[in-house]
Design a protein around this nucleic acid. Structure first.
Length: 437
RNA sequence: GGAGGGGUGGCCGAGCGGUUUAAGGCAACAGUCUUGAAAACUGUAGAUCCGCAAGGAUCCGUGAGUUCGAAUCUCACCCCCUCCGCCA
């Protein structure tokens, strides 16, 4: 949700931003509803003030006739109030509906573009891996080594479900260990911050195991319930399965107020993510690139408004650090207005090189939501001076397991069909250097 | 799932139809006293909305209802606690 004051004071700016994000919300209609709302509130408050005065009179009045007369007057006031309150409710419904449809405004450095084609590659690290043999894709590698079983997955649960087995399951665990060893360690974070030249505190991430289901009203407050056809819903209990740990990490401080000294507050969670992948039939059907269920380590943080951009840069730096120590080639992409999520103000994606497809594919995303989610979640900070502000929220992938496993399998495959285990993961793989040997 | 109890301001806790501004305590902040601190005393303090402001309105888990008037009565829902059942 945007600040209504921003819309009132700079309607042209909001219209421009909304258009760039391909929203067709009628801002003029929104402003009219806002005006109506304020007018009606004024009138209702006058009535209530009169009511309060009359109420006091009735309570104190000793004369019986005078009392009866005053009660009669109150009764009349009440009738008029009813009409006004109904009108107010209508104006508020309209206003809220339009406000929740309106996306966040893009940051000043976000490129304007219609869709994916407007995204801008901001840096490339490493080179696409070269092989002196014909590289296989992860499906071939996985089947040959007994690591991936899509066939049984679809027999048991349907298309886009899989079994990840053996050393690949161990490798996923190793990635989890690696990620937590960095995120929960202040010294490691300091090193990442220094390497990236950032000016942010090295506050460690608090590891969390959050709920995998969420109530619709909370989902709504996160501005993530839509697109609804993308969500799994459990009708018997009216709960949704989360599509990302972000969905239940974000509301962890709803209706709470931080003290300034408690920010930034950082969380990391390792959870499955459930996605219906509606509308992507026939797309990426091979292997484990696009599944209905995949595991993901997610970072989330609450920060002071003026520090949130640097916080996002830290999240990207952490992502890049992990890819670098693994040795996966990637490129960083600044996502344009037309391709961004609704609540996002600034989005940076990392795309890892996947030799099986001869392409960079999205493995990470880092979203700066500014105060867009915090406003509806009512997550605030009391500044040292006493002022109340909404916090800024950041959310980013730390490791999307399936996709990173693909990158590792395909980039580190050997001519003999085995897979080299990145050095930093070997401690958690029994000291072994290869899968399949 | 069944039975019972409960949700009041940062915290504890009174209020159970109208003298409305929610008693009282603790914690907080400022001041007095003190060499300094503690103690004591005095005072100040919440959030949201409308308004340029003065000021006004709202907020006792949430929502609806009864009433001229609701923290207080009714209903639904949510959450917490205790016991029983089931269960990793």
């Amino acid at each position: 949700m945007l600040d209504i004051n921003l819309i009132r004071e700079h309607p042209e700016l909001v219209k421009k931003g909304a258009a760039a994000k391909r929203s067709d919300v009628d801002i003029d209609k929104l402003l009219y509803a806002d005006e109506q709302r304020r007018k009606l509130i004024g009138q209702i408050q006058e009535f209530r003030a009169a009511q309060n005065v009359a109420g006091e009179r009735i309570a104190k009045e000793a004369d019986k006739d005078a009392k009866t007369k005053a009660v009669e007057e109150m009764r009349e006031l009440k009738e008029k109030m009813k009409t006004l309150e109904a009108e107010l409710a209508e104006a508020e419904t309209t206003l809220h509906a339009l406000l929740s449809l309106l996306p966040n405004m893009p940051s000043d450095d976000t490129p304007v573009g219609p869709d994916e084609s407007g995204n801008v590659v901001i840096r490339t690290v490493g080179e696409p891996t070269k092989f002196d043999f014909k590289p296989k894709d992860h499906v071939e590698l996985g089947e040959a080594l007994g690591l991936i079983d899509n066939e049984t997955g679809s027999e048991v649960a349907g298309a886009r479900f899989t079994y990840i087995k053996g050393d690949l399951a161990l490798l996923q665990n190793a990635l989890h260990q690696l990620a937590l060893s960095i995120l929960t360690d202040e010294a490691s974070l300091s090193a990442v911050i220094k390497e990236a030249g950032l000016d942010v505190p090295a506050t460690p991430f608090v590891p969390v195991i959050p709920p995998l289901m969420i109530k619709p009203e909370v989902f709504q407050r996160m501005a993530r319930l839509e697109p609804r056809e993308e969500r799994y819903h459990i009708p018997s209990d009216d709960l949704f399965l989360i599509g990302s740990a972000e969905h239940t990490l974000g509301p962890i401080h709803m209706d709470e107020t931080f003290a300034e000294k408690d920010l930034p507050r950082r969380y990391v969670a390792y959870t499955p993510a459930f996605r219906r992948e509606a509308g992507s039939y026939g797309k990426d059907t091979k292997g484990i690139l696009r599944l209905h269920q995949f595991d993901k380590i997610e970072m989330e943080s609450f920060s002071l408004p003026e520090q949130s951009r640097a916080e996002q840069d830290l999240f990207v730096a952490i992502q890049e650090h992990i890819l670098k120590i693994l040795g996966v080639p990637y490129q960083a992409v600044q996502v344009c207005t037309g391709d961004m999520g609704g609540p996002d103000s600034r989005q940076i994606d990392l795309e890892s090189w996947m030799p099986g497809q001869d392409k960079y594919r999205e493995t990470h995303t880092a979203d700066l939501m500014t105060d867009y989610q915090a406003r509806r979640l009512n997550t605030r900070v009391r500044r040292d001076g006493g002022e109340m502000q909404f916090v800024h929220m950041n959310d980013a992938t730390c490791i999307a397991m399936g996709r990173l496993l693909i990158a590792i399998m395909e980039n580190f495959q050997e001519a003999d069909g085995t897979i080299r285990i990145p050095k930093v993961l070997q401690t958690w793989m029994g000291g072994r250097t290869h899968i399949g040997k």
